[in-house]
Design a protein around this nucleic acid. Sequence first.
DNA 1: GCGCAGTTGTTGATGTGTCACCTAATGAAA
DNA 2: TTTCATTAGGTGACACATCAACAACTGCGC
Lengths: 160, 160
Amino acid sequence: MTPASEPRWLTEAEQDAWYAWRRMFPLVNAEIARDLGQDSGLSEADYDVLSVLGSTDGHRMRISALAELMQWSRSRLSHQLTRMEQRGVVRREDVATDGRGAEVVLTAAGVAAITDAAPLHVESVRRHLIDILTPQQLQALAEVGEVLRHHLKAPRKGRP
Amino acid sequence: MTPASEPRWLTEAEQDAWYAWRRMFPLVNAEIARDLGQDSGLSEADYDVLSVLGSTDGHRMRISALAELMQWSRSRLSHQLTRMEQRGVVRREDVATDGRGAEVVLTAAGVAAITDAAPLHVESVRRHLIDILTPQQLQALAEVGEVLRHHLKAPRKGRP
DNA sequence: GCGCAGTTGTTGATGTGTCACCTAATGAAA
DNA sequence: TTTCATTAGGTGACACATCAACAACTGCGC
């Protein structure tokens, strides 16, 4: 087989972007996750599930649909729902039209949890991210996210 | 106690930035981590430790210094080093000047692992992030990282 | 020297994500 | 109807991160 050619190492500017990328996300998210735990006793995973369910009508959703919407594996969601079910914030229900399927439903406690948590969480996100950046910087983030998401769906070329 | 005032919900533009933030990082990093595992049999944590040690002279470092440099807890690093030591890529050594202390040293296998992995990893990072974005977007990322990192060290104001 | 607070590094328990594998049900083809 | 590939969802083993607790050692004040 042919020997690998010398790789294109990162330039100074590229390294800056790469290190920023690697560092900023875990740091900021850790702050937000810490707030969420202290303020509301929820993990980020808890919050994400609750907030999606909270914005559906009937506060319910087919499990596989929820997994796809959140871009989670079914396995991960199943484990997460088991934990949340034990804590009483969601409930599983069989669905009549498909014997294999199941739905998740928010319990009253679940509705209360997300209703209480949401305002505090928004403030936390503002404090640690949104209010720190300029509108231009926020727009740049959204733009980068758009480009990357688009590229994931349709990669320009496969592995060399 | 006083009732909480209505929170400042996110505007459309702010939501775009927030969703981009939440989604792009895990997705892109999962791609890069997957490449790393397939190409080199390493986790991201493995790679980070190996690459830091590989760029020190003597291929060795005091454990607490390594933890601080990587912004890891000592506990996390200790567990990680135990796993890596079992796989033979690093070795722990007592340090003479301080009976409490210890150093990590790359083994020959460790040097080979990082030497082999680095070029493939750079290509992967280019493929999934760097080469997709324009120089302006890369600079924006670096700038945002800088602002956020600076803010973490000196928050403008405490919790209201 | 003696006592003691602080540091270094490790360990075990717990919670979570991933992977491979499993069962049950579906729907379509033979 | 019988077969069979596919789909929905769950389970158990493992890898990893975090937390609290711990032992060993240091270096300072006395």
